[in-house]
C-alpha cells in the first residue's frame, strides 16, 4: 500500500504544481483583480485559519447542519434502500419518486423550504437531507441487487433463515455499494450545506462567502471555498479509511 501511495501521489502533485505555476504566471501578468493568484489564496487561507475567529464559528454553524442532516440521510437512506431492494412491492411504489428526486434540482426548492421551516437549523438540515438522501438510498438498493442470486440460494440450501441471509449475505455483499452511496451522499450533503447558506439562510460559511464576495475580496472567497474542499476531502478520506476497515474486500473505487 505504501509504495502505491508514493507512485500515485508523485504525478498528482506534479500536475498540481504545474497547474498552480501556470495560474500564478498568467494572473500575475494580467492584473485581473477578480481572479486571485494562488499565493493570494494561500495567504487568505492562512489568515482564515489562524487569524479569523469568525471562520471557525462559521465552520461550526455550517457543520451542525451537515452532521445532523447527513446522519439523518444515512439513517433513513440505508434502511430504505435495503428494504426497497428486498420488497418488490415497496420498490415499485418508491421507484418513480426516486427517479424524480434523482434528476430534480433541489436548489430552486430552497425558498419553499425556508417558508415552511423558517430560517433556522431545521431548514438547513432539511436541505442537506434532500441533497443526500436519494443517492444513499439508490446506491444501497443497487448494492443489494448486485448480489449474485446464487449466493442467496446457496444460503437457503443450508437452511439459512431470512435474518441470517441478511447478516451473512446481503449486508456484506451490499457494503461496497453502500459505501459508494455514502461517499456520494457526503459530497452532496456538503454542497447542500453551503448552497442553502448562500442562497437564503446567510449563516455559517455561506454568510462568510457572501460577505467576502460583497466586498470583492475574491482571494478570501476562494480561500473559504478551498477550506470547504479541504474539509470535504478530510471527511472522504476518513470514510475511505473506515471502509477499508469494515469492508476490506471492496474494490478500490478511490475518490482521493
Amino acid at each position: 500500500m505504501n509504495k502505491h501511495a508514493l507512485r500515485d501521489w508523485g504525478p498528482r502533485l506534479a500536475v498540481l504544481a504545474v497547474a498552480v505555476a501556470l495560474w500564478e504566471y498568467f494572473l500575475s501578468r494580467s492584473q485581473n483583480f477578480l481572479l486571485p493568484t494562488f499565493s493570494h489564496i494561500a495567504t487568505g487561507l492562512f489568515h482564515l485559519i489562524f487569524f479569523e475567529p469568525r471562520f471557525w464559528e462559521a465552520l461550526y454553524i455550517s457543520n451542525q447542519a451537515l452532521i445532523f442532516g447527513y446522519a439523518t440521510a444515512v439513517m433513513i437512506g440505508v434502511p430504505l434502500g435495503l428494504i426497497a431492494a428486498r420488497l418488490p412491492w415497496m420498490d415499485r411504489f418508491l421507484n418513480p419518486y426516486f427517479a424524480v428526486l434523482l434528476v430534480m434540482p433541489v436548489a430552486p426548492l430552497i425558498p419553499i423550504v425556508i417558508i415552511a421551516l423558517g430560517l433556522g437549523l431545521a431548514a438547513r438540515v432539511f436541505i442537506v437531507v434532500s441533497f443526500a438522501l436519494v443517492f444513499i438510498t439508490i446506491n444501497t438498493r443497487a448494492g443489494v441487487r448486485s448480489i449474485e442470486p446464487t449466493l442467496i440460494e446457496m444460503a437457503k440450501s443450508f437452511g439459512a433463515k431470512e435474518t441470517q441471509i441478511w447478516r451473512r449475505i446481503i449486508v456484506p455483499g451490499a457494503l461496497p455499494a453502500i459505501f459508494a452511496g455514502l461517499r456520494i451522499g457526503l459530497g452532496r450533503a456538503i454542497t447542500g450545506m453551503v448552497m442553502v447558506e448562500l442562497l437564503l439562510v446567510a449563516s455559517g460559511l455561506g454568510r462568510l462567502l457572501l460577505e467576502f464576495s460583497g466586498r470583492m475580496q475574491s482571494d478570501m472567497v476562494f480561500a473559504t471555498v478551498l477550506a470547504v474542499i479541504i474539509e470535504a476531502l478530510a471527511l472522504l478520506s476518513a470514510m475511505q479509511f473506515l471502509e477499508r476497515k469494515i469492508a476490506p474486500w471492496a474494490p478500490n473505487i478511490s475518490i482521493g
Binding site: E148, L151, E153, S157, F158, R168, P172, W249
Partner: peptide
C-alpha cells in the same frame, strides 16, 4: 447442494466459506 458457479462468499476466506453451512 454443490453449485455450478461455486457460490462462494467473495468476502470470506476458504475456512469461512467451508464453515458456512455449519455456522448457519
Amino acid at each position: 447442494v454443490v453449485f455450478q458457479n461455486f457460490a462462494l462468499l467473495p468476502w470470506t476466506d476458504v475456512l469461512g466459506n467451508v464453515t458456512f453451512g455449519l455456522d448457519v
